[in-house]
Computed example of a mutant assay.
Amino acid sequence: MFRHLAAAVTALAAVTAAPAAATPGLVPAADREVAFTVDGTTAYGTLHVPEHRPGQRLRAALLLPGSGPTDRDGNQPPVSSPNTLTQLADALDGEAIATLRFDKYGTGRTGLGAYRDHPEELDYPAFVRQAQAAYESLRDQPETDPHELLVVGHSEGAMTGLVLGGTVRPRPVGLALLQPQAIRMLDLVALQLKAQVSEATRQGQFTPEQQRTVHTAIDAAVTSLRENLPLETTDLPPAIGRLFEAFQGPNARFVDSDDAVYPPDIAAALRPGTNVLLTCGTNDAQVPCATTNALTTALRHAHAGGPGRVTLPAVDHLMHDPDHPDTLAPPVLDSLHRLTRH
């Protein structure tokens, strides 16, 4: 969860064909390395172009990663490699939709760029500007139709996609908000932590009184961070105390600026009729379905188009289910198809 605005965009570079046999008369599917520059940093990504007719302009989607140091493929090496964005690109290839995914700040080939010597100045709006530059790069690719662009974001990337949906030009025709960060960041962190403490209490690790004390201390820590007050961690378990302490210092600017965004308010800027898919998984402990209620209501008031909120049975935050622990679950693929067929 941790680490608006014209941007100079420069598209580069070399084509590497995917090792698939081409259908006679069609251009084979291929990946191309692209680069774009914003705020003095060059970001690098992968443009995937499905098989298509020569000269054909394709629908295209910008893929935005979740929170933390998540790279263009949706991975945080060496800790986690679910290949979330790679799998989304593969799924959209089947819908004849080109995709661009990129290494955001602090990941992959992009790294910290202009923020390398002062990472404490990196804030959430910088990531939004970077995503906007990526959208503009996708818009300007020779194979893409600039009037048929989508934004597909996962977790924090879904919140960024929602911001882009109301600011970029041309406006995207559709948004996929997959397991989105749909409330303020620190509220979501508090909810997640309280759920963990409640489960630990159920298992006998805390008494009910200790649980109430920790819950109160979590709320107090959130208030301290928002009001720039001294942080008191005495009543917090050490791991939770260290987490809140990590939100200070070099990370404070990012945390403050991310927490300032309330996604239901952002929905009001969408163009009426924008098709929006919002997914929530019943096994998602990080973004419970209930956290998307206010955003769902705001999208309805903004007159967004369908398919709207889709509840995914037994699907977790990485969009897996028990029968598909390493790939996108079928309900996820079906929900994407429901958006793209609009």
Rank of each mutant, 00 (worst) to 15 (best):
A133I: 04
T201P: 12
R139T: 01
L162F: 11
R171L: 10
V163N: 02
I183Q: 06
T213I: 14
E156G: 03
E199K: 08
Q132C: 05
L178A: 09
G157Y: 02
G111R: 05
E120D: 09
E136Q: 04
Y105T: 08
L122T: 06
F127D: 09
Q196T: 06
R139N: 03
E143Q: 14
H118Q: 15
Q130F: 09
Q181F: 00
P146H: 11
V168N: 01
G94E: 09
Q179A: 14
R171A: 09
D103I: 10
G106K: 05
V151N: 03
A195T: 01
Y105I: 08
A91N: 12
Q196H: 07
V152H: 02
G165E: 07
L92V: 14
G153F: 01
R129K: 09
T107Q: 06
D145P: 13
R169F: 08
G108L: 03
V168Q: 00
G108Y: 02
A158Q: 09
Q196L: 06
H154I: 03
A131D: 08
E95R: 15
Q192K: 03
A89V: 09
Q196G: 09
G108V: 03
R139G: 00
G174D: 01
S137T: 13
H147Q: 15
P172T: 00
M159P: 08
P180Q: 00
L122A: 00
R116E: 11
L150A: 12
V128D: 05
R116L: 15
V163I: 11
L191S: 08
T99W: 11
K194S: 11
E143S: 13
L175G: 02
R101L: 14
Q211P: 07
E136M: 05
R171Q: 11
Q130C: 05
E156P: 10
I97D: 11
E136S: 10
V163Q: 05
Q181K: 01
M185R: 03
V151C: 01
S155Y: 02
T160I: 10
L122R: 13
L150H: 13
R212N: 08
L92Q: 11
P208D: 10
M185K: 00
F102N: 07
S137N: 13
D90V: 15
Q132S: 11
G111V: 10
T144Y: 09
P208I: 02
V168F: 00
E120S: 13
P172Q: 01
D103R: 07
